[in-house]
């Protein structure tokens, strides 16, 4: 939007540079008019929190204002999100770091007090972390197809970091699509799940890339596939689930996505200022380095596209939750 405005200006005026500068100062003066709050709907220390603090740090420069990170954890991410949905006097300066918890939470929690789509403005998808289908090094299965064939007669245990995590739901999605026999084994977080996977107590997991990357590299775990739409540059030799194609796997595309959303009443100038700022942030070397360490890719979608992405994600998880019997 803003690009369009300035492009028109460039065409109309000869002193394009001067004007573009003045446009951005006008925007800067309109928004933000004070500190910006970034709500993290999870406890300090998790991936969402670490990521948010990193982004907040970079946004501080881009927006030239203080960005305060506020943790409001509870019930997946629904407590913090529900609070944002209520609006209030700071809503025009409050952002929220949404993640799969936003859609999965809406899919599995009953009677949410908010609408996960209509109550929010979707600003930008910032980062996508693929999940990796990993088996212990001692596992006999070398490919996804081998695994699925074995899982027709043998019950496979898959570990996950908690009911409703993207890891859990990926496993359930895999089970539903391929018709494999699988049992979800819950752990209190990815850290606790790792020993069971490394020790071979569970057969498979759909862990986040950063959790298992070093173990794949050291050979303690074997990556059978990644869950993203395209192969990960960090594991170029590992196929995606969707490219395998068999057993309905062509429909299997999911990532742990992170993006900023805000309350419906978020002002238009704030939305524009945020997009400009985020574009700037996502080009910064610090950000790219950070993404690389997470084995993640910068987000692809913004605005309406992002909203549509969330709608699709929600529909998919609602179906999985229903089939797996996780919705109460």
């Amino acid at each position: 939007m803003k690009k369009f405005v300035s492009a028109t200006c460039i065409a109309a005026c000869s002193s394009a540079l001067l004007l573009a500068a003045s446009v951005s100062t006008v925007n800067a003066a309109d928004w933000p008019t004070g500190d910006v709050r970034l709500v993290v709907p999870y406890a300090p220390g998790g991936t969402t929190d670490v990521l948010s603090r990193r982004v907040a740090d970079l946004l501080k420069d881009a927006l030239d204002t203080n960005v305060i990170v506020e943790n409001r954890p509870g019930a997946g991410s629904t407590v913090g999100t529900g609070r944002l949905a209520r609006g209030g006097r700071d809503a025009d300066h409050t952002l929220l770091m949404a993640s799969p918890g936003h859609t999965i939470g809406a899919a599995i929690y009953p009677d949410l007090a908010y609408d996960p789509v209509e109550d929010f403005v979707f600003i930008q998808n910032i980062i996508d972390i693929p999940n990796v289908m990993v088996v212990p090094a001692s596992s006999p299965y070398q490919t996804v197809v081998e695994f699925i064939e074995a899982a027709q007669d043998k019950n496979m245990a898959f570990s996950h970091s908690g009911v409703g995590s993207s890891i859990h739901m990926s496993g359930e999605l895999f089970k539903t699509l391929t018709g494999s026999q699988m049992t979800a084994v819950p752990f209190a977080g990815s850290g606790a799940a790792l020993p069971a996977l490394l020790g071979g107590d569970v057969d498979v997991s759909f862990e986040n890339m950063p959790t298992v990357y070093s173990h794949i590299k050291s050979g303690d775990l074997r990556a059978l596939a990644v869950t993203s739409a395209e192969r990960s540059p960090y594991l170029p030799e590992v196929p995606t689930l969707s490219e395998i194609g068999e057993h309905n796997l062509d429909q299997f595309v999911t990532t742990a996505w992170f993006g900023l959303i805000a309350h419906n009443s978020f002002p238009e100038e704030g939305y524009e200022a945020m997009q400009t700022a985020l574009d700037e942030v996502m080009e910064r070397q610090e950000f790219l380095d950070f993404a690389e360490q997470l084995g993640a890719q910068p987000g692809q979608v913004e605005g309406e596209e992002f909203k549509q992405f969330v709608i699709d994600d929600l529909a998919r998880w609602e179906e999985v939750a229903q089939q797996a019997g996780i919705s109460q």
């Binding site: 019930a75 009911v163 409703g164 819950p186 209190a188 019997g325 109460q328």
Partner: peptide, 8 residues
């Protein structure tokens, strides 16, 4: 929430 089934 129940850690296995997610029921309340």
């Amino acid at each position: 929430l129940d850690s296995v089934f997610g029921s309340q």
